[in-house]
Amino acid sequence: MKTRSWILIFAVLLAVCSVLTAILFARRPSGTVANIYRDGVCVYSVDLSAVEEPFEFTLTDERGSNTVRVERGRIRVTDADCPDRVCVSAGWVGENGSAPVVCLPHRLVIRVEKSAKADGGIDAVAR
């Protein structure tokens, strides 16, 4: 085979793969995702960069409840019925690598991460 045909084969292959990659990964959410963990298990994920309207919801279990407020790019606990309310005073966390919000009495942790952990997607066993 001629060197020229080898070059052509690889050029075409690279071009096809680039186009495929661009198509397949074009609409992936690349922003920041807030993952809420209870007892170390992710129970709720929300893509902070895709939030249009701010909203609130309450996470309740037998230990108590926490009210979480979500706005574009940030998340916080606005109310909780735990004794110390450390999670409420932790305030907003966003994309700038803030420490996670922790509510120890309710075993609740809110982390801002790069990808959603709730649905155990493709990335789970990639390694």
């Binding site: 690889f10 690279l14 793969c17 680039s18 495929l20 990659t21």
Partner: peptide, 27 residues
Amino acid sequence: AAIAVTRTPALIVYLPVLLIGGTVAGL
């Protein structure tokens, strides 16, 4: 192997990216 082990055929979407990497690294 990854698809066989994880039984996740959806992994194939990574193939184009891997092929680019493989070609360039191989070159």
